[in-house]
Amino acid sequence: MSLDTALNSLGLPKAPADTRVVVAMSGGVDSSVVAAMLAEEGYDVVGVTLQLYDHGAALAKKGACCAGRDIHDARRVAEEMGFPHYVLDYENIFQEAVIDEFADSYLGGATPVPCIRCNERVKFKDLLETAKDLEADCMATGHYIQRKMGSDGAELHCAADANRDQSYFLFSTTQEQLDFLRFPLGHLASKDETRKLAAKYGLSVADKPDSQDICFVPNGDYASVIEKLRPGAAEPGEIVDHEGNVLGTHKGVIHYTIGQRRGLGIGGLADPLYVVKLDVDNRRVIVGPKEMLATRTVPVREINWLGDGGFTDRAEREIAVKVRSTRPPAPAILRPLSDTEAEVELLTPEQGVSPGQACVFYDTDSTRILGGGWIWRGA
């Protein structure tokens, strides 16, 4: 094989047997299929699973990734496919880099996305460095996103299956990280294809259900986790309208999010009201009509730019953005303010834009992700 021209399936100029790949294994079907696929192709696969908390004993629910049963499942797949597997204790790192910020952000009235911070600060930072220490040529994950080579190097693109696309959670991937990462499932048309591959390889996790919600939040109950992490956080206060009129009381600001309608305990009013702002300092939940949720201008900071050229090379540009993971990209204008801050103008106002969420940038003419940043205050 000519090293000048021949690339293996991971885009590296060497034989698979001479290519070491660290596979980040959560214990789920996606990362298990990645590891099995690469092992079958003859790569030098090393599976690594992170223990992110005390085997599920403290906060995690049954079936969450990176604890308890899932570590066992990842180890079993490695045994079935015949490659080495290691479990690394990242509990302290995860606590400091992800869980503590999640709690503090929530207490500050934001709606954090800890999965993004986990990718940014743990999986694609510390684990990636561990992969390099293991003399790996690259690191592969089971994320549904695509890495494509462009004229200026590796680019990040949406997954082929829009229903599985995880670009919202990976916008903070840096160019240096992208050069080292591989996403072998991003081109698949559906999750069914992944499960068929798992069955083909005879994996014990082939029919394992997908993990849901945040791994350390049982049943999506954010407030109960915050109360465990920050005792006394749920102090009662007033529910007021946008003019300051008291409409009722609440049992703690941490129980509410921007855009919430149900569970306010202020029934009997002529028109439905929604949470439009959280006044943490005064322990007030401010409600108003649905039209008050409409946001056109979104301030963004901590920007990670993956587009061509420097971020501030142009005064403004037309892009598409996601302000929530469940929404499709919408037309917007991006106006850089500095290397790490910008103002995003939504051409069609969106409801429920909340501080702490991500604003992810997309190219309007392709599937490329241009980066993104964090929404940092209510508009």
Results as ranks from 00 to 15, higher is better:
G232P: 05
G63C: 12
D161G: 03
I286P: 01
A57R: 10
D70R: 15
F183S: 00
D18A: 15
N219R: 09
T173H: 04
F102Y: 13
D207F: 06
N219M: 11
L59A: 00
Y144D: 02
Q351E: 15
G237E: 03
A330V: 15
E341P: 04
A35I: 02
K200Q: 14
D126N: 12
H242P: 07
G11W: 08
N163I: 09
P289E: 09
V253S: 10
S172Q: 11
N8D: 14
R314P: 00
R314F: 04
D30C: 04
A103M: 01
D207T: 12
K61Q: 15
V360L: 02
R301F: 01
P299I: 04
G202I: 04
T49K: 11
T297Q: 15
N304W: 02
E135K: 13
M139I: 00
H157F: 12
V253Y: 09
T340M: 07
E343T: 09
N92Q: 10
G186N: 02
L306W: 03
A17G: 05
H143A: 02
K322F: 06
A97S: 11
K14C: 13
L278H: 03
Y362P: 03
F311V: 07
S167V: 13
G288N: 07
G259M: 05
E40Y: 07
R20C: 00
S172A: 13
G237P: 05
L88I: 10
P329I: 05
T19C: 14
E80Q: 15
F183V: 00
P16R: 03
L127D: 00
G186E: 02
W374K: 13
D104H: 11
G42F: 05
G373F: 06
C65K: 12
V285E: 07
V360A: 04
Y144K: 00
G371M: 06
H85C: 05
M25F: 03
M149W: 10
I258C: 02
K61A: 15
S172W: 07
L7V: 14
E238D: 14
M139L: 12
R195C: 07
T141M: 08
D104L: 12
